[in-house]
Design a protein around this nucleic acid. Structure first.
Lengths: 148, 148
DNA sequence: GTTCTCCCTAAAGTGCACTCTAGGTCAAGC
DNA sequence: GCTTGACCTAGAGTGCACTTTAGGGAGAAC
């Protein structure tokens, strides 16, 4: 009465297959597990077998990592998931906080990008000038350039 | 005839002032200089004095760094600037390449952000459900959650 | 039966960008 | 004249996220 029918057809993947599927190296997958981000079931010989939920977890960790969340913070989240208690509210809060940080960071980066683009435009203007001018002017342009 | 009137009123700043102005620490400013990104004039006693163009350079380095350009790459750019030759075209090419990389990266991060937001929405829906339900359902939700 | 390929662990190494320390100089203010 | 605070250098240390190494095990393929 306690052992509910488990899905026999669930496919499991080796670490190499997960690496190929997700783009995360085999080394890094093991590293994540040692860091406590994952808990992957093993065969009796010790080999990892990733269920679909493990692969999904790897992908979600990818979202967090690629947006700059430190391993430490992801670990906090993972610990909440595994705590057994209903920590949904807190987990959501963590994610929202991270999302806000990332949004801020993206806005920041966009501003920096504008600065870079301005410089590119400055070069373009300078080169256009040089094209329709003589060599002396080109010299002057590069010498007096306002902080190229 | 060679020494053109130089602007007497140009203000110069100490390293501490530049740090306060740009948000880059004193340590990092010296580090950038040792790395070859900057060449700041000195007083006879060795103290740095930043001209406006030096401050502008610090700010531009900030744009590049904060968008992830490695010090090495910034150094390449700085070397081109100092090379004496007209390297405008190449410098522009470097900046354009970086700009494209950053744009790609921002798009990537935006995709990851969408993944994170989806998870947050999943939590919000789960918590809404739990609000209008009893404790047992809450339990079930956290237990059967698809890769929380 | 040995070669190949994948898998395993523990631990050391790497690369990057700072960041800090130790030991000092120098000018201004009390 | 001495304390304070800002500056200087060379070099060591830090934190992070991998990445590599060393030394193996296990099962399929020839």
């Amino acid at each position: 009465m306690n052992t509910v029918m488990t899905n026999q057809t669930e496919q499991v993947l080796t670490i190499g297959e997960v690496a190929a599927l997700t783009g995360v190296t085999v080394h890094t997958l093991r590293y994540y597990e040692k860091a406590g981000l994952l808990e992957v079931p093993r065969l009796s010989n010790g080999q990892r077998r990733y269920r679909e939920m493990d692969v999904k977890a790897v992908e979600f960790i990818g979202h967090l990592r690629r947006t700059g969340m430190p391993i430490r913070a992801i670990l906090e989240y993972a610990d909440l998931v595994r705590s057994g208690k209903d920590t949904s509210a807190e987990r959501m809060r963590l994610l929202e906080q991270h999302r806000d940080n990332v949004a801020r960071e993206l806005a920041e980066q966009h501003k920096h990008l504008v600065g870079i683009t301005a410089k590119i435009e400055w070069y373009r203007a300078a080169l256009d000038q040089a094209d329709s001018s003589d060599a002396r002017l080109t010299e002057t342009l590069t010498a007096t350039a306002s902080t190229p």
